[in-house]
Amino acid sequence: MNIFRFAGDMFHLISILVLLLKIYATKSCSGISLKTQELYALVFVTRYLDLFTDFISVYNTVMKLVFIGSTAAIVWCMQWHPVVKRSYDRELDTFRHYFLVGACFVLALFLHENFTFQEIFWAFSIYLEAVAILPQLVLLQRSGNVDNLTGQYVFFLGAYRAFYILNWIYRYFMEQRFSRWISCISGLVQTALYADFFYYYFLSWKNNAKLHLPA
């Protein structure tokens, strides 16, 4: 494992921990999109079906379980926790995420490596991950003001994607391995979705001002 891949994984882990910490410390989930969290839970469950069939490393297995568990915990808190659920911005979080699920599944039925149960769900999870952040970005845009932790959550997720791309470039040249085109295209789309957010995040950081997205 190279440093870019490890950094990417750590940013991914930190982003989820930031969310859990925010929910735990403030007993509030305002500004967080439940729909994005549900999509990520679905992404992890469908991608890590290989937990039952292949063993890669202890690191791999542990990280997969942590990703599934922590995302499930966030979804649970936002939906069922008696205090936390009251702060959920239900009326702002109206992105029709079932369309994303449907579209990604149809895409996976047509574009995949092999026509097997696992490969189709793997491709589905890659496509869905690329667009899963959309409900969160729409929610941030609607609420206008972004609190620090939610801003950092999206920032860390974007950093995770950026490091994964560096990881693919590194592996291409140093390990003579190429990333599958399904991952590459989806990864680029996913990273591009963050570009706009990064621009405003950088501006607010430079001006030392609160992050504010234009309507």
Binding site: D9, I56, M63, K64, Y164, F178
Partner: peptide, 10 residues
């Protein structure tokens, strides 16, 4: 020769 990345990524 380049080989595809096996699914060892998260």
């Amino acid at each position: 020769k380049q080989d595809p990345i096996t699914k060892d990524e998260l």
